[in-house]
């Protein structure tokens, strides 16, 4: 049971808003030592973990070109373009992005859209631009909210789209684990089909919440939920 102390460190650390790096570092060292690893093995675990997980940081190679384009007005242009589509409110735009993210992920194109390559330079400024067209300059609080929802559209679309694709890691994990442990034979196709009901729910639930964002923005900016459109 002692090893669960590490879990407690993580929960307490995040709950009390300690520095995430220190929380995770402490939890890792504590769990490793309590779990019977020697200090050398704990170091090795940190090293191996870092080496094996480099793929999650590799998006950094896109930052120079994103930075360059932003320097030359990419975000401003994204804001300008969205204003040409009068019917495209912040909520409708983000719901469309959610759908697009889900469809591409379901086709196995998970790397096509993402936070560094599409949300920061394109989707977030477009969502803001759509709100600015209606409400004028936005206070920081509203801007934060729109950006947070832009990030959420990407995550929800990705998580509940990718499992419809057969060759994705989680499907392979399920078949690999079940077939090896229980000597059964699960078809990836059956698993992928069973991801569809939840995917539809995700689109409806989060899409509905994104559409409601327009009402919240009206409330924030004008004090009443009726649209100015």
């Amino acid at each position: 049971m002692l090893v669960l102390l590490g879990v407690l460190v993580v929960v307490a650390g995040f709950a009390t808003r300690r520095h995430p790096l220190l929380v995770v570092g402490t939890a890792g060292i504590a769990t490793g030592l309590l779990g019977g690893l020697s200090p050398g093995q704990v170091l090795a675990a940190f090293g191996n973990g870092f080496a094996d997980s480099r793929a999650v940081t590799v998006f950094s190679v896109t930052l120079p070109v994103i930075g360059l384009l932003e320097r030359y007005g990419l975000q401003e242009q994204a804001r300008r373009v969205i204003t040409r589509f009068a019917g495209l409110t912040t909520g409708r735009f983000l719901a469309l992005y959610l759908l697009l993210r889900q469809l591409t992920a379901a086709l196995g194109l998970a790397g096509v859209l993402g936070h560094a390559q599409t949300v920061r330079p394109l989707a977030a400024p477009m969502a803001e631009g759509a709100a600015e067209r209606v409400h004028g300059p936005l206070p920081d609080r509203v801007r934060e909210r729109i950006r947070s929802f832009a990030a959420s559209a990407d995550n929800v679309g990705y998580f509940f789209g990718e499992d419809i694709f057969l060759a994705v890691g989680s499907i392979l994990l399920i078949t690999g684990f079940a077939n090896a442990t229980y000597h059964t034979h699960l078809e990836p196709l059956r698993l992928a089909l069973w991801a569809i009901p939840t995917a539809v729910c995700a689109l409806l639930v989060h899409g509905w919440r994104l559409l409601r964002l327009d009402g919240h923005l009206n409330l924030d900016m004008n004090g009443h939920p009726g649209g100015s459109l």
């Binding site: 090893v3 995770v24 890792g28 769990t31 490793g32 779990g35 690893l37 973990g49 997980s53 999650v56």
Partner: peptide, 23 residues
């Protein structure tokens, strides 16, 4: 913040090694 995802992947591996799953 950029280091955090890799660090958390590491923590997951340490949790697994130390037997958190079994508990």
């Amino acid at each position: 913040a950029l280091l955090l995802p890799q660090l958390l992947a590491t923590l997951g591996a340490i949790f697994a090694k130390a037997g958190v799953g079994e508990q």
